[in-house]
C-alpha cells in the first residue's frame, strides 16, 4: 500500500520550486549501502512503493531495506476536458520532494555485490538519476 500522511494541515499545496542540493538526508545512516538521487524531482508514493517491492522481491528474507523518503506533498490535478477556471484540482497522489543528494533507500545485512544488484533493479523504477552509495567513513 502506498505511503501517505495520516494527518495534514492543508489538503492541497502549491507546487514550489526545488533549489539547491540536499544538505540533510544525504548520508547512509541506517544500513551499509544506499541509493542516492542525482537529480531533483517528485517521487510519487506509488513509485516509492514499486521500488520497495522490487528490492524486497530481490532480497526475499535476507538483509533489511530502509525507505528514507516519505511522500509528504499532495499533488492535485484537474480532470480531462475540463474548462478553464473553477479553482484548483483535487488531490490525485502523494509525492516525496527530493533534492540531488537525497538518500532514497538503504540496505543492510547483505554483501556489496548483492546490494548493487538489488539497487540496479530498483533504479529502473526511479524517475530521477540515482547512484549507489557506501557508508561514509567515520
Amino acid at each position: 500500500m502506498a505511503l501517505m500522511p495520516k494527518r495534514v494541515k492543508h489538503r492541497k499545496s502549491q507546487r514550489g520550486r526545488i533549489r539547491g542540493d540536499a544538505s540533510r538526508g544525504n548520508r547512509v545512516v541506517f544500513g551499509d549501502f544506499g541509493l542516492q538521487t542525482l537529480q531533483a524531482g517528485w517521487i510519487s508514493a506509488q513509485t516509492l512503493e514499486a521500488g520497495r517491492i522490487a528490492a524486497q522481491q530481490y532480497l526475499r528474507t535476507e538483509g533489511r531495506l530502509y525507505v528514507r523518503a516519505f511522500p509528504h506533498k499532495p499533488i492535485t490535478s484537474i480532470p480531462l476536458e475540463t474548462r478553464m477556471g473553477k479553482g484548483k484540482g483535487e488531490p490525485e497522489y502523494w509525492a516525496a520532494v527530493v533534492k540531488p543528494g537525497t538518500v532514497l533507500y538503504e540496505i543492510s545485512g547483505i554483501s556489496e555485490e548483492a546490494a548493487r544488484m538489488c539497487f540496479a533493479r530498483l533504479a529502473h523504477k526511479m524517475p530521477v538519476k540515482v547512484r549507489f552509495l557506501r557508508r561514509r567513513p567515520v
Binding site: M1, A2, M4, P5, K6, R7, V8, K9, H10, R11, I53, Q56, T61, R64, P91
Partner: peptide, 21 residues
C-alpha cells in the same frame, strides 16, 4: 527472525488524510 513480507494491497486504500482543525 525476519518480519513477514507485507501482503500487497491487502487493505483497501484509505481516502484522504485527516485535515488538522
Amino acid at each position: 527472525v525476519p518480519a513477514e513480507l507485507p501482503e500487497e494491497a491487502a487493505e483497501a486504500a484509505p481516502g484522504e488524510p485527516e485535515v488538522i482543525g
